[in-house]
Design a protein around this nucleic acid. Structure first.
Lengths: 234, 234
DNA sequence: GACTCACTAGAGTATATACTCTAATAATAG
DNA sequence: CTATTATTAGAGTATATACTCTAGTGAGTC
């Protein structure tokens, strides 16, 4: 593997594990057992490394969120989108952690990320539209769909920070992909009221698969029986 | 004013404006025209300053989110809670920006913040309960209410980051409290499907007050007529 | 007037950080 | 084989950062 690619790979790994703020270019070089000079031969600066990693991330998510326009959407599609988005979030998890700082220090990144967000929002909105076309959720007026899509985005992008800052995670305990994917439970919670009668059961069952195992909120006290109870009000 | 308090005030101000990561203890001292030594006489280190600021923040939010248990809740109460929470978020906005790093570097803060989050989640959940008692929203099973409360929290705490990273905000343009409060629109969006017939109109009118003025998502194209249209599907 | 004590100045320091420079070595093209 | 180019090592550097240390000052107290 090319040194350049090794640098990108190691950087991503170290950033994810210890946070971009805690990883210097010297750390990266040391981790690869190459010299700082070598690293700076391949990249002008640290920002450049981060920018390239972002491009990979962007490419991945854009690939996942390519909505087929020639056929209706299925529940399997929805599952795929959700799983994929959280996979992506996991693989590049350092990125959202220091997002604001990163965007402040790199103009290109700032601009690109803005467009990226808009594409994601548009994709989410399109998914809602197609879910309605497929009779999985009720159709929503444009304005509501936009606001809903934005809420989905906010929940998705903040779920990891919530886990890391508020959840059981004592020192030493580190986040797992499985825990991260419980975010899908939260996203599906947003959709519950809009489900059609035809699909309600199936989506609720899907959601159940991602239910967090640990109690996660101060007043979630039962946790055992809920499975039949939770449909009560629909 | 005591030097100690001036340090806290200036720190908060500088952190909010330029980000904790970009502000050193020397910056703070220089801004106050005092010596670094003086600053370190009053605080052991930078973490201590941040911790004290957090304690103020915590106190403020705890004060705002004190739910009265001796009377039913009103729509005015709800408005107050929402406005207050966003006011608090605004006044201590640096905090959520570098949250993960801050918690990683200070054990006390980590622990305290976890409890703080849980109190907030419990308060949100309690508000939902009382909204149902008051006939403003339909009652929800515990499990759904918890998940909903968590989504509300995720939307609230991520809204600012969204504005800063994805919104119009070019360089130079800086965030305003007014824009921040448009997050209330997003929070109320979450509650729409649960509103009772009695209150739907009133809550929708309230929500309308916080509607963002700018188009905020890729597919929100109309923006002019929506006011009558948006109730179509309810 | 001696003493205490909260408070302050300002120089200084150890370390980290991002990055540069020079020189050397491998790889490749003609 | 030679010339060029790509790659690497490793020492070095300017600056920043968080923090320490010493030497006070000034207001009150007995």
């Amino acid at each position: 593997m090319k040194t350049r690619d090794k640098i990108l790979l190691s950087s991503l790994e170290l950033f994810n594990e210890r946070g971009e703020r805690n990883i210097t270019t010297n750390h990266i070089a040391a981790h690869l057992a190459i010299s700082p000079g070598n690293l700076y031969y391949h990249f002008r600066n640290k920002s450049d490394i981060i920018y390239e990693i972002f491009l990979e991330y962007e490419k991945l998510v854009d690939f996942y969120l390519d909505i087929p326009e020639d056929r209706p959407i299925t529940l399997e599609d929805l599952t795929f989108y959700l799983e994929s988005v959280f996979d992506g979030l996991w693989s590049y998890r350092f990125f959202h952690r220091d997002l604001e700082y990163l965007l402040d220090s790199d103009r290109r990144l700032r601009q690109d990320y803005r467009e990226f967000t808009n594409r994601c929002l548009a994709a989410i909105s399109r998914i809602f539209e197609k879910l309605a076309d497929a009779g999985i959720i009720q159709p929503q007026p444009d304005e509501l769909r936009s606001a809903m899509s934005l809420n989905v985005w906010l929940v998705i992008t903040n779920w990891m920070a919530f886990l890391k800052t508020a959840h059981a995670l004592e020192e030493s305990t580190s986040l797992t992909l499985k825990e991260l994917k419980q975010g899908i439970y939260q996203v599906l919670t947003l959709e519950i009221p809009y489900l059609t009668a035809d699909y309600r059961e199936r989506v609720m069952a899907l959601r159940e698969k991602y239910r967090p195992s640990l109690p996660e909120s101060a007043d979630a006290s039962d946790g055992a029986s809920g499975k039949d109870e939770k449909l009560r009000n629909f």
